[in-house]
Design a binder for these strands. Structure first.
Lengths: 287, 287
DNA sequence: GCGTAGGCATAAATTCAAATTATCCTTTTT
DNA sequence: AAAAAGGATAATTTGAATTTATGCCTACGC
């Protein structure tokens, strides 16, 4: 037998076998792999056909390894572990540092609350990198970025984080102080629609009221929390504040906006699976 | 770090790396893998992007492993070897027995002459299984079969072996014995066009001449070789005889036929790569 | 005993990653 | 110089693998 070449047994099938064997369930293996139960079932079906043996006994509501499967598993695991460990050691890739670059507000209001779940799901060590607003799009080394825009991103992986919906909110303490329209208006510089748009769309009287301007959503939010006025807030971002009762909405109307934050992934640095895990965890309505 | 899961580094890329590293050339790796140079180049490009390092130094007309590549290679090989060996030991799959089922004539006239190359290319231990004509299509365990027909096969892998072209041939010794049309006609029972068709198509006089009938092409061929008459032979099958001068053609006309032998592969038992190697070796005009 | 839920298999349809094709570029050889 | 060898790259095509949508079976609850 010549020593050249390793025969072509699709290794993704082997991976599916390992996961199913270890977890004792196709469904569980599917979850771990970010695939569907159907995919696992088929992979293993193919594997068995190619190998010419049953690897699993399909019992009701559970599967068991056959003798063949039992015999094969340790070797498969050894190979997979060896590969994973050496790769990790040399390149620090496998389940290692994942840097997410985003604005301070997104970091604080969107990522931090989801950090725990994210770390758990991805198994990675997460680093949040605050984007420097002034520096534009300096090439950072983050594999994942969050940017505001309308979606024409030149990257392969891109998904809107949430649907931008704006509505006025105030600290509960201010509720008794007469009509909210008369309160000082807090606004945040940036790309989001302004009070001007709000008034135009909802026929709110444009009575001149005092304004306070902030350069970050977080700052404006802090002011609102402190009872300094009414903030035209991004509802998804302040959901936690609303839930906690630190802020309350004062109008039913909602101002929508076509621009929003996008989750952007560097395709060459992320596997399909990693991307799915990330977006599943971070995108509104997916998790 | 949880012990669950092996991160998703596409293992086919790793295989490409191993082959290229071992062979010292992308082109050579492509050949071994039955892929194109382009495919190998891309796989390794992706791998490097994902890993975040160069694995090879691209020099003119050759490649060299970088330090990273050098360090990684042994681990990769260990994993791949472990997997291959255990799989082979348990299931005897990898580069093992390959049974080809065909008629006696095809075995003798088509497969045997190509056996050596086939064994070398596929790295498999080949078994030729003579199909029993009488038994119809009994399910044999051969992963590869050769059958006569017009191509409507219910298998995924199917390719015509050659284009059927018939023409009269005789042993050289008979050439002096007057017009070949007056020689006894040898014919083979079976699906191929008969002398009748030949005469109709070429306006050969249908002068009644003596006939000898055989139940296999091989038998008829032997008779022709022995100078017992003129055989309406399948040219691709007797090419070797013609080349060796044991038979000669007596007419320029060629009778074509839409039916021919097909190479059929059981998709679930053959990898794409194996199939390509086989068909590349066995199909006329490919090798 | 039935009904329901959990888990795998299967068919059909879709998706998208990966392969091929076709050039281009660079370097070595004659 | 011209040709050959080997690799990179862009564009296109292909087809394998995934998903979606069911179906089926069995254990378990009531």
């Amino acid at each position: 037998m010549d020593k050249t070449g390793f025969d072509h047994l699709p290794l993704e099938w082997v991976r599916a076998f390992e996961a199913a064997a270890r977890l004792g369930s196709f469904t569980a293996a599917a979850q771990e792999t970010s695939l569907t139960q159907s995919a696992i079932s088929q992979r293993i079906g193919h594997l068995e056909a190619r190998l010419g043996t049953q690897l699993f006994v399909r019992q009701a509501r559970r599967i068991t390894l056959t003798a063949d499967g039992e015999a094969w598993l340790p070797h498969v695991q050894a190979a997979l572990v060896g590969l994973r460990d050496s790769t990790e050691a040399l390149f620090g890739v496998s389940r290692n540092r994942l840097t997410i670059s985003a604005s301070g507000s997104i970091n604080e209001l969107w990522l931090v609350p989801r950090l725990e779940q994210l770390a758990e799901v991805s198994g990675a060590q997460i680093t949040l990198s605050t984007m420097v607003v002034a520096s534009g799009d300096t090439k950072d080394d983050a594999a994942v970025r969050i940017r505001y825009g309308s979606g024409d991103w030149p990257v392969a992986y891109a998904v809107p984080l949430y649907e931008e919906r704006l509505s006025p909110v105030v600290a509960p303490a201010l509720l008794g102080r007469g009509a909210w329209q008369t309160l000082p208006r807090l606004s945040v510089s940036g790309p989001r629609p302004s009070w001007r748009r709000w008034c135009a769309q909802t026929d709110t009287s444009t009575t001149p009221v005092s304004h306070l301007r902030f350069d970050s959503f977080c700052a404006g939010l802090a002011a609102a929390r402190a009872g300094q006025g009414v903030l035209l807030a991004s509802l998804p971002l302040v959901q936690a504040e609303l839930d906690a009762g630190r802020l309350v909405r004062v109008a039913d109307e909602v101002l929508r906006h076509h621009e929003t934050y996008w989750l952007l992934g560097a395709k060459e640095r992320l596997s399909r699976r990693q991307w799915r895990q990330l977006s599943g965890c971070l995108v509104d309505g997916t998790a």
